[in-house]
Design a protein around this nucleic acid. Structure first.
Lengths: 221, 221
DNA sequence: GTCTATACGATGATAGAC
DNA sequence: GTCTATCATCGTATAGAC
């Protein structure tokens, strides 16, 4: 019988490794309760492992959290990066950008909350400016920079072409982040407001339409 | 000599009580680091008091946090309540609503972050639906309900008058919250994006204009 | 009202057996 | 790779002197 190596990137057959299970569970817990609101014991019992086994896979809680954040931003960067291959008018690229961002938040429920935390919390990673002796940027921070700069370039292009209004670019970026990320991070409040589960197919599709129309109207000259 | 009682609500003369100092410091710390990211020792040393003195003013950390949240939402409710006396067309009342909300977030820097946390965190107050044995709504939760319901009524009125588009009301509320609250909660990222201090006079005034125009365009029929 | 002293569970992290 | 045992530290909260 022929032997088939099992490292062929076949996600169907491979059972998830402990490492992946830990990352998944930690993502959900950190999203709900924040960095210091979740203990290593709590994560360990959720993945049905001893607490010490976590420290075998991740040298510290800080490393685990950093990797959870980076995974989320990696998915976002990849999804938005594919859009860069779309070479249409700015309006079409804006549309694709919004679509991909909404889809990414919708596919992984904890993502929006974690993203929001990475932007708002001073803990456990304080803002680079306030950091003692100017620490280097973490992987997830560099990914965020790249994503934002790509969107900024899109806005500048649209404005210089006269397709978009001459909005304050910084404010426009803030607005778009707020509109897309907060919704999927709002959990209970969001469900109460829209009257159904936030991550259901119809709710996500409606959100995409509403956000797209809102931003289009806000930006168009 | 005539005796003047000192409980005349004269904020100029009264030195702030320990209680007020604690609430102010705790507001800033909880905003930056979240509920479980701040310890009572930390708060105590920041107000230059012994740790045990905090428990004299507040029976528990949970009570302190609840009161901090309620104070923030009280300021918001009061500011927006004054708008209800404006009896103009829906467009004018929407304008006043946005203006008041932005002004409230701008006047108290930690406010937006705390508000965001109260909407996103499951800790320390889990969503009412998930709570064991259906706990009663906390003061700050009731205030939030009132504020949102007033805004919902404004939207419904505008739509039924044909002044606003027939947007999804729940999504529109989410959008407005995201646009207004996230900006003032984003701290370091926001400052990098707009290139100056978020809470400076010019930045706040520009934000008000941008948000107002964005929402107006998004809602108008 | 503020303090010192104390209680005791939970925290992140390490050492070493299997 | 997973476990048990252990450590120092920090968490909230209380008791009681002044």
């Amino acid at each position: 019988m022929t032997e088939y190596p099992d490292n062929l990137d076949s996600p169907v057959l491979e059972p998830p490794s402990s490492r992946e299970k830990i990352l998944e569970v930690a993502e959900a817990l950190f999203a709900a309760n924040g960095y210091s609101g979740v203990g290593m014991r709590q994560i360990a019992s959720a993945v049905e492992l001893g607490k010490s086994s976590l420290f075998h896979h991740f040298p510290s809680k800080l490393d685990l959290y950093g990797e959870v954040l980076d995974r989320v931003l990696e998915r976002l960067e990849v999804a938005l990066g594919e859009d860069d291959e779309v070479r249409g008018r700015v309006t079409e690229r804006l549309e694709h950008w919004i679509e991909s961002a909404v889809a990414t938040m919708a596919e992984d429920p904890p993502a929006a909350r974690l993203l929001l935390r990475s932007l708002v919390d001073e803990e456990p990673f304080p803002p680079l400016e306030l950091a003692p002796a100017g620490r280097e940027a973490l992987p997830f921070e560099r990914r965020l920079d790249r994503v934002i700069n790509r969107f900024r370039a899109l806005l500048e292009e649209g404005i210089s072409e006269g397709v978009f209004r001459t909005v304050s670019i910084g404010d426009a970026i803030q607005t778009v982040i707020g509109v897309i990320v907060f919704h999927f991070a709002s959990g209970d409040l969001g469900e109460t407001l829209i009257g159904e589960e936030i991550f259901s197919g119809v709710a996500v599709e409606r959100r995409r339409r509403e956000v797209s129309e809102f931003i289009r109207r806000g930006l168009m000259a």
